[in-house]
Design a protein around this nucleic acid. Structure first.
Lengths: 225, 225
DNA sequence: GCAAAAGTGTTCCAGATACACCCATGT
DNA sequence: ACATGGGTGTATCTGGAACACTTTTGC
């Protein structure tokens, strides 16, 4: 039994952040999961996350956990919801602040952090059984992403620095799981005025080269009316 | 110095819920605030809220706090965001899960809970200085309410059991702070198919009586496309 | 009969949808 | 020359915005 050196007059729950990390890979919407090295749920797949340090802002905590697992910094990260059902963690009362992150596939260089036996990407359609209430969290994150597609440019956060319009369209098609008309899509995307031509082209096959575009404000997610 | 009987191996923050309670009164969007009886910020106005009990779900906690202050149950209550900046509370690390509630003006019967010196309604435009980071929370709650007006029927939660179309329109005008065309508004509201005529009318002046309506699913907030 | 709010339709415009062919390149 | 994905315009539909007069009641 380890020594318990933090004492309070009233009971305090433990607080963690968990992060739903989305990316687009192999023409699929994928999710980063870690395999737990320690109990509870040892050996189960779970969302990356961890305890909030005492002097650390919760957003910072989520950023730190994300970086530990993926090595990426400065990607889109948004607070999703806080889950605090008593009993969601068998050890003690744990309240978790869930975040979700969108990362461009190029930036990916996953590594198992110290508390994980393995890290891997899973297609949304082929998720394993998840630890804790993480299946619920993932479901809500997916829902939020879908909703935000409709009224923001959030999907552009999946794009790397330079991209073709076809790549953008693919991202929408993958997430929405439906085909989109090419002409209408391009008209819409260009009317946003949040991307511009780089002047370069991408030659990657025996066909006409595609114009490359870049985001005008890479970090910004525009809210559409 | 009180005895500190809850001990943990690692530091744990305190966790509270705070609630932004909106209503429409006197043709204004108003907010419920309490005057703090105890330090810190003794004598300041603040959001109602309190510590999460160990065996209590966080949603339940918010409901309980809301009921203690207003006596209402079963009103619209939604999680807003979690705030955990270290130093936001001078006593110790406190993370707060903010909620917002919409209550119909008829249901109001405020009472000062034990930890409050006073409770009162304030117009959004005439808020006093607020304790902690509550001004930020209120700002974000207002923002969320405005956004949700656009794509949901959330504003109907301000309505009592029976109402006239003019009353509904007033609510929208008050929140949006702009006038709305009567014919367009009624066309829109009736096309939703979430309200129906009661068959009764409201006679309240020397003019034509107004038809009364009721919500078809009173608790439901519809998401509009 | 008059003051006051309730109730009611049509036209117009903008943005979304449906739809098919030519272009530039690599092999 | 042909296979492959890149690139482009027009007609139609639909939902939102603008706009003014008649109705029913209380006094």
């Amino acid at each position: 039994m380890p020594e318990k050196k933090y004492s309070y007059e009233y009971p305090h729950p433990a607080v963690t952040t968990d992060i739903v990390v989305f990316t687009i890979r192999d023409q699929q919407l994928k999710l980063l999961l870690i395999k737990r090295k320690l109990p509870p749920f040892k050996g189960s797949w779970a969302l990356p996350g961890g305890f909030v340090a005492l002097d650390e802002d919760i957003d910072q905590c989520a950023e730190r956990e994300l970086e530990e697992e993926t090595g990426v910094r400065g990607v889109y990260l948004e607070q999703l919801c806080t889950y605090g059902h008593p009993g969601r963690d068998p050890r003690e009362r744990v309240i978790t602040i869930a975040y979700y992150a969108l990362i461009p596939s190029e930036k990916i260089q996953i590594r198992a952090a110290t508390d994980a036996e393995a890290v891997d990407w899973f297609a949304m359609h082929e998720l394993p059984e998840l630890a804790f209430d993480h299946a619920t969290i993932v479901e809500q994150a997916k829902q939020r992403l879908l909703t935000k597609l409709d009224y923001s440019t959030i999907a552009f956060q999946f794009l790397s620095a330079e991209f073709t319009l076809t790549e953008v369209q693919k991202i929408y098609e993958i997430i929405l799981e439906e085909e989109i008309d090419k002409r209408n899509f391009r008209k819409w995307a260009l009317a946003l005025e949040s991307i511009e031509e780089t002047g370069e082209v991408c030659r990657d096959g025996r066909h006409r080269p595609a114009k490359l575009y870049r985001k005008i404000n890479p970090r910004e997610v525009e809210i559409l009316k």
